[in-house]
Design a binder for these strands. Sequence first.
RNA 1: GCGCCCGUAGCUCAAUUGGAUAGAGCAUCAGCCUUCUAAGCUGGGGGUCGGUGGUUCGAGUCCACCCGGGCGUACCA
Length: 544
Amino acid sequence: MSLRNYLHSLITPALNSEMLFGNEPIVLEIPQQTSHGDFSTNIALLLAKKANKNPRALAQTIAASLQPDEAVIEKIEIAGPGFINFFFKKEYLANSLKDIFIQNESYGKSQKYIGKKANVEFVSANPTGPLTVGHGRNAVIGDTIAALLEWVGYSVDREYYFNNAGRQMRMLGDSVKLRYLQQLGDEFEFPEGHYQGGYISDIAKQLLAEFGDSLRDEPVEGKFKEAAEREIFKELKGTLKRLGIEHKAFYNENSLYEEGKISSLLDHFQKTGLSYEQEGAIWLKLAELGNDADKVIVKSTGEPTYRLPDIAYHITKFERGYDLIIDLFGSDHKATYPDVLAALKSLGYPVERVQVLIHQFVTIIKDGEVVKMSTRKANYVTLDELVDEVGVDVTRYFFNMRSIGSHMNFDLDLAKKQSDENPVFYLQYAHARICSIIRNAEEAGLESSTDSLYILQSPEEQALIKELLLFPDVVLYAAEIFEAQKVTTYLREAAEAFHKFYTFCRIIGVEKNLSRARLSLAIAAKIVISNGLRLLGVSAPERM
RNA sequence: GCGCCCGUAGCUCAAUUGGAUAGAGCAUCAGCCUUCUAAGCUGGGGGUCGGUGGUUCGAGUCCACCCGGGCGUACCA
């Protein structure tokens, strides 16, 4: 049982016995100052108003009816305006480290959502060009959220959705065809609005090599589009794989048409009177469903807009039985989802299972100037370039360090310069240090032991112990609010606690029982750090 | 114009989702290696938390209004 859970089970009956049935959840937080205890609750402050009592007096009443285990709790204090502060027995905290050894590589995982299925859709960039640094943020965040969900029990499918039926992909195919014709000797100016990237010419060159001039009359949507989609995807998948990211499924728009899902959805809308025709287009009555305005779902050209396949696609997610459906995309797609959700709701699907996560953009600064990214204009810094420069670990850690709502600035030159001093090395260094100690201990014939953990009572030892015991709480919390950045913040603190412990507490060469206990503590720290890094997809080197 | 997001140290970002004296990294200054990895540790300087009001025991966090920036506001995705 975690420390938090213990306190929870301590406080709940006390509140009941005092007839304090508030809806307020019992929040247990860790005070900034150690003099305020290991944990603190503000429950008396929250309940004081309802009970119409003085908060300090109420805190006294609650504290008096607590029945703490003397082997666990050192003391309970009332402080400030009415906080109840809890101090654990040092021996109890130290002995709690045993849980870490028992669970080992699983320490940090929990069972809360066992049996639940989640779908995490991320990246979902259309295959029109290489992944950029901006996509990198989405890719890393999505993959880490998926990992977090797995750690708390979900069975998770990582999914990538892309549109290959619309105008954008036709434009791509056309770009390839025009380059192909140029390579055949046709002279004309390449249109400004088409895809300018060099990879377009490369694909055209391959087609030329394979088919000669036989594709002169090939429609754009045939070999040209097919080749572009295939080749670009090959690249995309390679980039993702470098970062340790693999999607279980690539779901494409075309398949929705082929399986008749689009037409049957359209039929349904028409039958139920949710759509109507106007000016040659078919509109969805979104205003009636509470949104801003009706929107077109089939253009007057007969071609659906992205909304229709998006809705059909999400229906498949419900049909596939997911308990949690996560859509992660950049703020430029902000406008698309309210329509989709409203439509799904009107169709009777439990939209509360859908969590739409929106991350803000990455502003790239190169040579002191902001890079305005555009795939069409071939103006971008690719994710591959970034990984080439700083490596996988730094890339993954960097994106996970920031909350998804931050409009992050990314100075490429600074990133290169500072990659040696990136915070990820701080964690990896702690891990490598511990590994080194373990090697030295083996050589010295020292074995770790949990028999004498109670000895660990110095401030540095206790601080590290408390930090390590928090790990499962942090993972659960991060998973429930879908924020991996809570984990990076925590790991930095855990590594800091270790480095301080290391500085002040010698492990090898002190009294035998102390030596064994400290070695155990170091090993526990290694377990937490390596588990945390694994969760983030960052390597935990044994030597640096 | 309207909607969403953001504004915290010189720079890049945190802040236990309303808690007690706002913290890290980089940069900067001063210390610490004849003993387990100095990619580390200790200490200093650096802040009107964009601004003004409000809500309450308590606000960086919630509300209103301003200022500044990002992204949307399609018969593109």
